Simulated assay, not measured.
Amino acid sequence: MSLWNPNADHPLHVRIEDASGDPEADLGAGIELLGAVRNGEAPATLRIYRPGPTLAFGQRDVRLEGYALAVARSLEHGFAPVVRKAGGRAAAYHRGTVIVDHVEPAAEAMMGHQHRFKALGALYADALRRGGIDARVGEISGEYCAGEFSVHGMPGTAARTRNAVKLVGTAQRVVSGAWLFSSVFVIEDSAPIRALLDDVYRAMGIPMDPATVGAADDLLPGYTTEAFIDDLLAEYALHVELAGA
């Protein structure tokens, strides 16, 4: 029985990967995994990787007048522009971030849609708190790719910022028989992400406060992606049997 799916009794297989060098292929691999789980060709899986520099636009961004300029700005910053199938607005990530694709089979996948946002958002905040970060669930004013169940961090005495900063963005894709819960955790080196998102959101005419763009190590200097992955798996292990971790 898991926090996000009380009816599940299967283990969650952990798969830690290296980025392929092709940001679009890395993004598409999550959708391919969703299909494989739906068809019974793969087990419930927690796929974890650190991506190359990528700017993932949402479907709505593509229709904006400033989209072409935003793509150009992304390339100028050295981030590969891609369009994701899940919802939301543009989000940026690089090797200092961690992507987590949580995929599980479900007979009635849509029924648990809202519950998964709440349960997994809480789990992710707990994982960051395990590492010593004051993480909380909820949107902060002016954040990029705003979401009710995104996770933000509050500054403490050792923080390099005085602002609450967004740390985790989440999105879901649901198909008949399975669901994909995909999350971006910004752990290290927020400066290039902040500069890029400021330019891109200005190009698209979307209000965004760059002060809300941050990383876990802005709040806890020295915190690393490796430490975060350990904390994340430890938190998951409280709620589900992990295989292959």
Rank of each mutant, 00 (worst) to 15 (best):
H102S: 00
P155W: 02
R50T: 07
L128H: 03
R15Q: 10
G66V: 13
A36K: 15
L33S: 12
T225K: 07
A164D: 09
A234P: 02
P81W: 02
N163L: 08
G222Q: 04
T54F: 09
I16K: 09
A211I: 00
I206K: 13
H13L: 04
R130D: 00
D231H: 11
A68Y: 00
D61G: 01
I187S: 02
N7K: 11
P210V: 01
H13V: 10
R173L: 13
H113D: 01
T170G: 06
A92C: 15
E148P: 06
Y223T: 01
P105M: 12
E143R: 06
I187F: 11
E65N: 09
I99Q: 05
S74C: 15
P105T: 11
A227M: 15
L120R: 10
R89M: 07
D217Y: 04
I206N: 08
H152T: 10
G96H: 03
A245D: 01
V200E: 12
E139W: 08
G138H: 15
L3R: 15
D126G: 09
A92K: 06
N5L: 09
A119Y: 03
P43A: 07
D101H: 14
A245P: 07
A107C: 10
G156H: 12
Q114E: 15
L167H: 01
P51G: 05
V62N: 05
T161K: 13
G177V: 06
L69G: 13
G52H: 09
G35I: 05
L219F: 04
V62I: 14
I99R: 05
R162C: 03
G88V: 14
A86K: 04
S182Y: 07
E139R: 13
P210W: 02
I31W: 03
